[in-house]
Structures are given as C-alpha cells and as structure tokens.
Amino acid sequence: MKKSIVVFEVEGGNDKGDDGHRRDTMPIVNAIRDKGWNAEVVYFHPDRAEEIFQDVSENYDAYISRVNPGNIPGGEKGYFELLTKLSHEADLVGMSTPEEMMAYGAKDALVKLNDTNLVPDDTAAYYDVESFHETFPKTLSYDERVLKQNRGSTGSGIWRVQLKDRELAQSVEPGTELPLDTMLKCTEAVDNHTEVRELGDFMDFCDQYIIGDNGMLVDMRFCPRIVEGEVRILLVGPHPVFVVHKKPAEGGDNFSATLFSGAKYTYDKPEAWQDLIDMFADARPVIAEKLGGDNIPLIWTADFMLADAEDGTDTYVLGEINCSCVGFTSELDMGIQQLVAEEAIKRVEEKHA
C-alpha cells in the first residue's frame, strides 16, 4: 500500500476558483495529507490519458473524481475509460467509479424506481427524439411536467413546463395529444427564467439533450410543493452528514432550489429530519436492487420534494440522486472534508487488509 490518493480535476469550467481548482478540492487534499497520507491533484485531458494511467497506476492506491462531466474536454467517454481502466486493470479503489456514476447519478435512475413509492409511477425517459416527440404532447395534457436532461448540473436543462392557457390546462382531456402550436410557459431551474414557446418549437429545442453520448430526457410530474423547498440528504459513503433544506426564491413560477437562482439554504443535522432519514434508510436496499448494486459513492446526495400522502400527511418524492461531482463548498466550515478523507482512507485500508 502506497498510502497515496489522486484527486482528478479538469481545467476550466465555472466551478473553479482563482487557483484553478474546485473550491472543495484542496480542502479534501489537505485533509488527506493531515492524516499522514499523500494526496495530489491531476488534471485529466484526453490527449494525456495513457500518460496519466501509467503515472497514477504506479504511484497511487485510489482516485477521487472531482470532475463535472459537462466540463470534460471531448466528452465523458475518454475520462470514464481511464477511470474504468484504473479500477479494473490497475486495481485502484475508485471513488466514484463510472459504474456508480451511471447507476446512481444518471437521471433515468428515477425511471428505474418508478414502481416504488419513491417517485410517481408516470415518470418516463426518452432516449431518442422520435419517442419524445410522439409521447410528450400527450403526457403534457395531464398537467405540469418537469423535463430533466441527463448531463445538466446546477439546474441547467431542467425545465418546468406548463400550458400558458390555464383554462385550457384545466379543461383538456388527459391523454389528449396537444397540437404543436400549443403555447407553453417554460421555466429553467438554472436561474428561474421563463420563456413562452410553442410546443413544437420547444421540443425541437430539447432534442439537444437527447442527441449524443448518454443523452436522454426524463419526464416527471411537477410537484407543486417544491415551492416549500427541496430537501437534500448529503452523504459521505453510507453516512448521512447533513440535511439541506433548499427553499426557492419567492415569486412567479420559481421552482429552482440552486444557490445560483437565489434559493435559501438551511443546514440541519440528520436527526432534525429523522422521518426522512429513516425512510431513505429503509429504501436503500430497494435502490441498490433497482440500480444494479450497492456500491455506495464516496460523496453523494438524494434530493426530495414534499408531497401529500393519501391520508393527508407529509411524504417525500425523490427528485434525483447526484454522485458525479457533488459540490460542498458551503459545508467546508462544518468539517465535511475531514469525513471525506476518513472514508476514502478507510476504503483503501479495507481493500488492503
């Protein structure tokens, strides 16, 4: 055992500070070093993939991926190939592996869970343009929907879609195929901006989210209680660390719970949301079964929205799971980087025990 962990980043992107790193990268590196281990940052670039493989496989026990897939030069394919090769051929401990990112982090994880009580059963995914154009004009007749692209982060490509004519929305027969000139009101989560567009034009615009590697759109029922806030469980390995209550900015059709859009965040200990923590713990085996294994990511989140149960009590709807590159800059003063370092070192030590 070399007692050495590499942290992967890529150059550029709007998630970098003045030093060229993500703001939570060096705190992780320093926390690992404080425990007597070596930790270094390596920037991935597809032109250097073989050189990086040789260096990392010879000098490190494990990798931690701190790469937003949307910022990878040339797309995620080459990066995922490197990570897979390091895990399978060089036998490094991967945190998180491409398999974990695809199983837990892809938006269609929601579709794989739509026969559980975690998500509405009418949640669907479109993997090709034809099925999207054929089906979405019908699902929209059931009332407001949310479309989520697979590659997005911080609310980019996540759209709340509603009929502009609310009288039409209330009178249209569910299952009716809406004409392509139906006017829509579309609000993007990244900044809560609203656009009025024709249905056909909006679908043409959304084709970009489907085309390309791992392209897809998830079509999900809009949960009106999102205005009360999104509730995020932040986990390090199997351990819930914080519950973040993210309340969207008030006004209009605002529904985004990102800091970029003006949402307000409140940080609580897990026991303050014990019913949600217990529900998620009970659901973990089901999630593992449906998503293809219980290889728990190093840093991950599960986002929930409040909803009404049939008996009138509160329940929770799973909005998404994130594990590709969860940011936690706001939590650094709470010491989360120390927990990340401890969990990462523990995984390496367990492998070599």
Rank of each mutant, 00 (worst) to 15 (best):
G94E: 11
I64E: 06
Y63L: 07
N71D: 15
G94M: 10
T135F: 00
N117D: 14
D91Y: 11
D115I: 07
G105V: 00
A125G: 12
D115P: 03
D128N: 15
E100K: 08
L83G: 02
A124E: 14
T135P: 01
Y126F: 15
V67P: 09
L140A: 09
Y63Q: 06
Y127T: 09
V67F: 10
K138E: 15
T123V: 14
E81W: 05
K112C: 09
K112L: 13
V119R: 06
P73E: 03
Y104C: 06
S87K: 15
Y126Q: 03
V119S: 04
V67W: 08
M101R: 10
L82A: 00
L92H: 07
T123L: 04
V111W: 08
S141L: 11
S96I: 03
N71I: 01
V129T: 15
H88K: 15
D143H: 14
S65H: 03
N114L: 06
N68T: 04
L86P: 02
S131G: 02
G105P: 03
K77I: 10
E130S: 12
T135W: 00
F132I: 11
H133A: 11
T97P: 00
K85S: 13
T123D: 03
G74S: 03
D121A: 12
S87F: 00
S131D: 12
D91F: 10
E99Y: 09
Y127P: 01
A109M: 10
E134N: 13
A90T: 08
A125W: 00
R66C: 01
N117W: 07
A106K: 03
G74P: 04
E76T: 08
E100W: 01
N114C: 14
M95D: 01
T116V: 11
K138T: 15
T123K: 05
G75T: 00
D128L: 00
E99F: 04
D121R: 13
K112Q: 13
M95R: 07
F132H: 14
V111S: 06
F132T: 09
G70M: 10
I72V: 15
G75N: 03
K107S: 07
V67H: 05
D115E: 13
S87V: 02
P137R: 11
D128E: 11
N114H: 15
A109R: 01
L118F: 09
S96R: 01
F136Y: 14
T135V: 11
Y79D: 00
N68A: 11
L92G: 04
E130A: 14
S96Q: 08
V67I: 15
E89L: 12
P137T: 13
V111I: 14
A106Y: 12
M102Y: 05
Y126N: 09
G70N: 09
P73D: 03
G74H: 03
S131T: 15
D122L: 04
L110S: 07
G70H: 06
K112I: 01
N68R: 08
D143Y: 10
A103I: 03
K85E: 13
A109K: 03
D108W: 13
N71K: 05
Y142L: 11
E99W: 08
G105T: 05
M95E: 06
S87I: 02
T97A: 13
D143F: 12
D91M: 11
L83F: 07
F132R: 10
Y79W: 13
F132P: 05
R66N: 09
H88S: 12
L92S: 04
